[in-house]
Every structure is written in structure tokens, then in C-alpha cells.
């Protein structure tokens, strides 16, 4: 099993400007007049071998795959399977104000390291140790890269391109580095997590563990009002949409109003443990279901989430 990852905090020879760990992904938002319909998600897909070297295959901008590796000096190399050629994309360790040759874009044969202490502020946060790489004008008219900004242990946070319709800017909106580090910037978020997508019925009744997470990383506290001591609920619906089980059935709650404040930078987790049984105590029939969970705030149902799962009998 491999769930825990450290993301290389400060022990490598130099900062890791492009952490190519399994599970890493970077989601960008686009501004400018020529943004693609589908916003780009750069994602580590798999590892691969070529010419005796190990590469990380990444879904790159505009849907194409890129085979990448970082050498011991921190240089980011790109391998092109069609030509079996390797080219240098980024010499991150290059001194400030110095240029290096790159193959990252046909229109940009040269890149220049601007600053390693560039102050960047964007959707995922503010950093004062960003690396800015600029691309001097080349022979291409209205095409190519303008600049890129990298943050140690996070990756590419901003990319500016020149297009015939004007500048196109991608800014990192969300990143997961490895399996255990998540950068989402300011967000008001609600999610439902189930411990399994498939519950099997053998002798006993299967048990579901569900977690409702309300996360607030906006600058303002979230204040929730509840009309009773109950804060959340969860219903199980069958494939006909009928509710067959409800967590709060038979439970007692105090009748007093209560407020719950979710402070900036914090979250609230509500865990529901539920036996997937009918009122007689027998396991629910085999089939497809949806678990629907929500916070029982007063007024409209503002925070809810649902996830599908299956119950299967094992004979």
C-alpha cells in the first residue's frame, strides 16, 4: 500500500520546482480571449522507460502527453517517443538573469531565469520564493510562451502565452502533490466520502462509514444555523429514487437553536456510521443506491452531496 507521501520537503539538493510524484495533478483556470473550452488539468499518468531512463508520463496542456524526468541537478528533461529524442525543457538551477536553451516550445528556443525570489500571488496562495522564467521574443509572430512561474514543491503556478487573439494566461487553481498534499486556495467546499463503492452481503449486514466535510479557507467565517441539535443527515436511496434508509430515523435531538462557526482555514467533519439494513434488520437488497448527505441548516439545503454505491450479495 502506498498512501502517504512527503513531497520532498527541503531535503533535495535544490528546490523541486516540478514535483513529479504519482498522484500529482494541477488544475488551471484560464483568462484571455482565446481560452480553450476545456480548462487544462496537468496530471501524472504513469511511469515509463525509454533509452534506459525512467520517465514520468504527464498529461500536459492541450491534452497531449509529455514524458518528463528530473535529473540529479534538477534539470527537467522531455523525451519525445516519436523521434526518440530527449530535449531540455528547464534548467531550473541556472543563475538569475542567465539564459539557457530549451525545447519546450518551437517558438521559444531560449529561456531566461528571472528571479528565484519572485513574489507570486494567485488562486492557490501567496509565495515569495517563486521562480520566474521569461521567454525572450523570437521569430514567431503572435505565438509562443511569454513567461512561466514555478513554486518549490508545488510546480507551475502560472503560464502566459502569446496568441493571435491576445495573451492567454493559465493560473493554478488547485493542485494535489503526491497523495497527501493539497493546495486549493480560498474555497468554501462540501464533500461526501464513502469508505467503499461496493458493499458485499455475506452473513452479516454491511456497515457504511460516510464522512461529510465542510471546509472553509475563505477569509470570512462561515456561520451555520441549525434549528435543533441535529447538524447533518444521510439518506440511502434505491435506484428508483425511493429513500430506504435514513440515518436520523429514530434518533432524538435537542430542540434548541444552535450556531456553528467554521473559522477561516478550518473544516468540520461529520462521520456517519450506518448499517445498510432495512427496518427489520435485514441487509438491504442487492442493487445500486445513492447515499445523499446534507447539513441540516435552517432555510434552503445549502450544503449537500451524494455518491453512488452498490450492494452485492455473495453466495
Amino acid at each position: 500500500m502506498l498512501f502517504l507521501l512527503t513531497c520532498g520537503i527541503g531535503v533535495a539538493a535544490g528546490p523541486d520546482y516540478f514535483p513529479l510524484y504519482p498522484g500529482s495533478r494541477w488544475v488551471y483556470r484560464c483568462s484571455g480571449v482565446t481560452c480553450p473550452q476545456d480548462l487544462p488539468a496537468v496530471e501524472v499518468l504513469r511511469s515509463a522507460e525509454a533509452s534506459g531512463r525512467s520517465y514520468t508520463v504527464v498529461r500536459w496542456f492541450y491534452g497531449r502527453e509529455a514524458w518528463l524526468r528530473t535529473d540529479d541537478a534538477g534539470v527537467l528533461w522531455h523525451y519525445e517517443p516519436a523521434t526518440r529524442q530527449e530535449g531540455l525543457w528547464h534548467a531550473f538551477q541556472t543563475a538569475e538573469a542567465q539564459a539557457y536553451a530549451t525545447t519546450i516550445d518551437l517558438c521559444n528556443p531560449t529561456a531566461r531565469v528571472g528571479s528565484r525570489a519572485f513574489r507570486y500571488q494567485g488562486p492557490v496562495g501567496a509565495f515569495d520564493n517563486a521562480l520566474r522564467i521569461t521567454y525572450p521574443p523570437s521569430g514567431c509572430a503572435d505565438a509562443g510562451l511569454t513567461d512561466e512561474i514555478f513554486v518549490p514543491n508545488l510546480g507551475l503556478v502560472r503560464r502566459s502565452e502569446t496568441t493571435i487573439g491576445g495573451p492567454r494566461i493559465f493560473e493554478l487553481a488547485y493542485a494535489r502533490i503526491g497523495n497527501a498534499t493539497e493546495h486549493g486556495g480560498a474555497q468554501a467546499a462540501f464533500a461526501l466520502s464513502l469508505d467503499q463503492p461496493l458493499y458485499t452481503v455475506d452473513r452479516g449486514v454491511p456497515q457504511m462509514t460516510a464522512r461529510l466535510t465542510l471546509r472553509n479557507t475563505t477569509p470570512q467565517p462561515l456561520v451555520l444555523r441549525f434549528g435543533s441539535g441535529q447538524t447533518h443527515d444521510l439518506a440511502i436511496k434505491n435506484d428508483q429514487g425511493a429513500t430506504v434508509l435514513r440515518w436520523s430515523d429514530g434518533q432524538m435531538f435537542t430542540q434548541a437553536l444552535q450556531d456553528l462557526t467554521v473559522a477561516p482555514g478550518t473544516e468540520k467533519n461529520f462521520v456517519v456510521l450506518l448499517a445498510l439494513a432495512d427496518k427489520s434488520g435485514a441487509a438491504l437488497p442487492q442493487g445500486r443506491y445513492v447515499a445523499e448527505a446534507w447539513l441540516t441548516t435552517t432555510g434552503v439545503r445549502a450544503y449537500s452531496a451524494s455518491a453512488g454505491f452498490e450492494i452485492r450479495r455473495v453466495f
Binding site: Y174, G185, A188, A189, A191, L192, L194, Q196, F309
Partner: peptide
């Protein structure tokens, strides 16, 4: 886990 969620900025 199997998880689904929505985040607003």
C-alpha cells in the same frame, strides 16, 4: 475512499 465534492472560490 470514494468522494465527491464541490468547491467554490
Amino acid at each position: 475512499e470514494l468522494s465527491f465534492g464541490l468547491s467554490l472560490d
